[in-house]
Amino acid sequence: MGQAVGHHLSRGVMKGRYLAGFLLAVLLAALALIWWAKSSRQPPLIVGGELPAPCRDASFEAVAYVVCEIDLRSYDIGVFQSGADGKAFGSLEKFDKAMADQGRPVLLAMNAGMYHQDLTPVGLLVEYGQEKAPLNLADSEGNFFLKPNGVFLVRKDGKTAIMETSAYAAARPDVMFATQSGPMLVIDGRLHPRFEQNGTSRYIRNGVGVRDDNTVVLAISRSEVSLGSFARLFRDALDCRNALFFDGVVSALSNGERMIVGGSYLAGPIIAVTGKKLATQ
């Protein structure tokens, strides 16, 4: 009898240990899943790095930014997505290396529009006067389709502008470079009508504004910011009557040699600044 009781007790102890071990394994797996979910939502790696000549650190509404003011009388600016082989560069780091290998080093590069899984642009892309992807007038979900959206462009005469998409479709300007994205941040001095004052959606974001025919303003936040505050940066602090959102989460900026903001994130269209007349075929 005593042996039977001991046997049952031993089995009970073993079951208890097994159950405790199983519960511990479940707990560890749950903690790992929580850690992964949190880490996957972290903002991009903030690297540091020396700012290019046209760029400066700035602060607006308690958010730190890198702001790059490009005078097109001193610099060239273009939009690029793929190399001579037709393959997408895929990231700022790969783009910088490709340009350096060709003897065409860039002063700065930034992701410049949204893309599909194969890295092709969601909207219009024009490189060196050739349309690589068509204007997208569709209605759908997501930031790109938060109308009005728009097009950043550099005309063949070297002048720059940001146009609302339907205005671009009507005018069909003669452009050397163009990239379509959305939403517009500022439209003729007015903030996008769908933006909240300070919405709960916060990400590291980047975009482009135009101050006049010769001045392009690129900005990227160093920490998370709402679309409303980001739009006010362009209108109120950077004096841009028109500005266009490029992207969030994957936003990145390089100085041609290393990352300043962001990490090794995928990129479709890329905007790049070079010394005057260097960006020619």
Results as ranks from 00 to 15, higher is better:
residue 178 A to K: 03
residue 6 G to C: 10
residue 101 D to W: 11
residue 121 P to I: 13
residue 195 F to I: 14
residue 40 S to H: 09
residue 196 E to D: 12
residue 55 C to R: 08
residue 163 M to V: 12
residue 214 N to W: 11
residue 168 Y to V: 04
residue 22 F to R: 04
residue 149 N to R: 02
residue 253 L to F: 11
residue 37 A to C: 08
residue 38 K to G: 08
residue 15 K to M: 12
residue 87 K to Y: 08
residue 27 L to D: 00
residue 157 D to W: 04
residue 276 K to M: 15
residue 16 G to S: 14
residue 271 I to H: 11
residue 217 V to I: 15
residue 68 C to M: 14
residue 263 G to T: 10
residue 173 P to M: 15
residue 179 T to H: 03
residue 66 V to G: 00
residue 213 D to M: 06
residue 191 L to Y: 06
residue 128 Y to I: 05
residue 275 G to S: 05
residue 171 A to C: 11
residue 177 F to Y: 12
residue 75 Y to F: 14
residue 103 G to Y: 11
residue 270 I to T: 09
residue 25 A to K: 05
residue 157 D to L: 00
residue 42 Q to P: 01
residue 248 G to Q: 07
residue 168 Y to G: 06
residue 124 L to V: 11
residue 52 P to Y: 00
residue 132 K to Y: 09
residue 182 G to V: 03
residue 174 D to E: 13
residue 130 Q to T: 11
residue 184 M to S: 01
residue 194 R to H: 10
residue 143 N to C: 01
residue 275 G to Q: 09
residue 77 I to S: 10
residue 115 Y to R: 02
residue 205 R to G: 13
residue 235 R to W: 03
residue 181 S to P: 04
residue 261 V to F: 04
residue 243 A to H: 06
residue 160 T to F: 07
residue 161 A to M: 05
residue 215 T to R: 09
residue 253 L to A: 10
residue 174 D to F: 06
residue 101 D to Q: 14
residue 30 A to V: 13
residue 150 G to W: 01
residue 218 L to T: 13
residue 105 P to A: 07
residue 176 M to I: 00
residue 246 F to C: 00
residue 108 L to M: 15
residue 191 L to C: 09
residue 174 D to M: 11
residue 134 P to A: 07
residue 17 R to D: 00
residue 180 Q to A: 07
residue 19 L to F: 10
residue 262 G to T: 01
residue 272 A to H: 04
residue 4 A to N: 05
residue 122 V to H: 02
residue 226 S to R: 03
residue 117 Q to I: 10
residue 70 I to G: 00
residue 124 L to S: 01
residue 103 G to K: 13
residue 24 L to M: 08
residue 110 M to S: 08
residue 194 R to G: 10
residue 54 P to Y: 08
residue 194 R to K: 13
residue 75 Y to G: 01
residue 267 A to C: 10
residue 249 V to M: 12
residue 257 E to L: 11
residue 223 S to P: 00
residue 20 A to E: 12
residue 144 F to D: 07
residue 202 R to K: 15
